[in-house]
Each structure stands twice: as C-alpha cells, then as structure tokens.
C-alpha cells in the first residue's frame, strides 16, 4: 500500500516537473505535449466517471470538448469582431463558466433521452448526439464552419497569463490533479457507492428503491461538465477549434484511453492518456499512416487480452 502511494506520487510529480524541466533545458516541444496530455487526461477522467464507475459506455464525449472550446472561442470572436454583446468577452471566468453551463445543459438534455435506453442503444445515441454537435458547428458559417474558428485571444484571468506556455501548462496539470481528486472523492462517496451499485445490478437497485435514472443523469452531467472544462482548456491551448475535433473518432480515442488505462481507477485515465500520447508521437514519427499500427494494436488488445478489454475492468467492490 505504501509502495503504491509512493508510485502514484511519483507519477504526479513526473507529470508536473519533467515537462517544466525539459522546457527549461530548451525543449519547449515537450511542454506542449504535456499540456495536451493533461487536457486529454482531464477529459478521460471525466469519461471514466460514467464509463468506469457508472458502466455507461458513451461514444460521444468529444462533443463536450468541442462545446467547451467553442465556449472560449465564440465569446472571443465576438469581442474582436462585434455582435452578440451578451457573451462578447475575453474574461476567463465568463468563458469557463459558459463552457460548464453549456456542457451541463447539453448533458442534461441528451441524458434525459439516452439514459432511458441501455446497452447498444446508449452507445449509438451518444454517438448520434455528438455528431449533431459536429454538424451544427459545420453549418454555422460565422464561426468558420468546416474550417474551424481561430481563437485570437486566450482567456484572461487575474494573476495568471494563458499566453505564457509554462503557466498554461501548470494550470492544466494542476487542473488535472484537482479533477482526479474530485472524481476520486465522488467515487468514494455515498453517491459513488450508489453509482457502483447501479453498474453492478441496476434492476436490484431499482427494486431497493433507488431512482437509478436520476443518479445516472447526475453522473452523466458531472462527466459532461468535466469534459467541457477540458475543452475550454483545449481551446486556450490550441487557439483554434474546428468540428474535426468533435469527430467521433476523437470520442473513440477517449474511450481507448480510459479502457487501456483501467476503468474505475483514479490513475487509469492518466496512464491511458500517457500511453495514447506516447503511441501517437512515436508511431507518427515513424509513419504518416500511424493509424494502421494503432488500429491493429487496438484490435489486438481487444482480442487477446484475456476476456477482452472489459476484463481489465476491476469490479466496483475491489479494493485498491
């Protein structure tokens, strides 16, 4: 147990310190990579709340990344070019607040529909709703449509400066740690127990008197908000957002991270995101066709890891 805590502490320290050190030594590339890693890991942690702890297989979580990023880009766009005075701002609190608000509303509305159904219906409907957001942004010419929207000004906060890549990275890393801690707290709470019970045997939970729909919806909304938050950071990092970032292949990659890292664990999403980023970097330097080995790897893991990837899912009651 002591050893495990030590290793976990080491991972967190490495995620925070190594990129800063490399940057200091003149390799800013790794800082950017680590920033992207932290942002993806936040989204994976958010997805893990419903996929891992709640057993809800959402194939549409990239949509929340998009919503969060557009919630930064659209106010900045109007601040610069006029129109939509109500939201035209570069104020980070407003932009991030908007990101959380929009993603919670979208999660609430779509959750009301997709949580009524189970299994494969749920997978397909979450996909379809994400695709709806994708086509929505393609259709809005003012925000760049297909070509995407350049975010000319990053979010402005007092004391921190998002234009400074070191500060932005530090914010992303600290946010990641905070979100990991948050989801860990939730998973250990009474709500988390109920969620685990629903994942284990929903029918029994209903028969015991739990309104399981409401609990799942709450988890779904929290999960969406975390991914929306991640999207707002993503917008600040890339200073660009396009519908392509909402594409359902992105949702698939998020799922891959969560499952490869280990669902329903605190560190799983982070480890999955690290693996994904490394794979992507290494494979894409070897070949522009890196999706081929990546796809083969995915198939291989599903087929040959005993019982498939879902066997890697520890049961909710297993103690760490």
């Amino acid at each position: 147990m002591q050893k495990k805590v030590f290793v976990q502490g080491l991972i967190l320290a490495a995620v925070l310190i190594v990129p800063l050190l490399l940057n200091y030594m003149g390799h800013p590339f790794y800082l950017d990579l680590a920033t992207r890693l932290c942002i993806l890991a936040i989204a994976a942690v958010g997805l893990n709340l419903i996929l891992g702890y709640g057993g809800m297989i959402s194939f549409g979580h990239a949509a929340y990344l998009g919503l969060g990023a557009y919630a930064v880009g659209i106010p900045a766009h109007h601040w610069l070019y006029g129109g939509m005075d109500a939201i035209a701002t570069t104020n980070g609190f407003v932009q991030f607040g908007l990101a959380l608000l929009v993603s919670s509303i979208f999660a609430l509305l779509t959750g009301l529909i997709c949580l009524k159904v189970k299994g494969v219906y749920f997978i397909m409907i979450t996909m379809a709703f994400a695709q709806m957001v994708y086509y929505l942004f393609i259709s809005i010419a003012e925000y760049g449509g297909d070509d995407g929207l350049v975010i000319d000004t990053r979010s402005e906060f007092p004391l921190v400066n998002f234009d400074d890549s070191t500060q932005l990275f530090t914010i992303c890393a600290v946010s990641l740690f905070f979100v990991m801690w948050l989801v860990w707290r939730i998973s250990k709470s009474q709500f988390g127990m109920v969620l685990a019970g629903i994942k284990g045997n929903e029918q029994r939970m209903i028969a015991m008197g739990y309104n399981t729909f409401a609990y799942k919806l709450a988890a779904y909304v929290i999960s969406g908000m975390i991914c929306g938050f991640s999207g707002a950071l993503l917008g600040n990092f890339t200073t660009f957002i396009s519908p392509e970032m909402i594409d359902w292949a992105r949702s698939g990659e998020l799922m891959f991270m969560v499952i490869l890292g280990g669902v329903a664990t605190t560190f799983g999403p982070l480890l999955g995101a690290i693996t994904f980023i490394i794979l992507e970097e290494v494979l894409s330097t070897i070949t522009i066709y890196w999706h081929l080995p990546f796809g083969l790897l995915l198939i291989g893991v599903v087929m040959f890891v005993k019982g498939g990837l879902s066997a890697l899912i520890p049961k909710a009651g297993d103690k760490e």
């Binding site: 707290r185 250990k188 709500f191 988390g192 127990m193 109920v194 739990y210």
Partner: peptide
C-alpha cells in the same frame, strides 16, 4: 449498506467518504 441507504432519503451525497 446500499439496501439500508435506499430507505434514508436521497443518496446525492457526493463528498463525505462513504467508509
């Protein structure tokens, strides 16, 4: 424990560790 909780109002308690 889950069976007991089911009767004690809602379980939307996100914070306090269950243990």
């Amino acid at each position: 424990q889950l069976a007991i909780h089911a009767k004690q109002g809602h379980s939307f308690k996100f914070w306090k560790p269950y243990a």
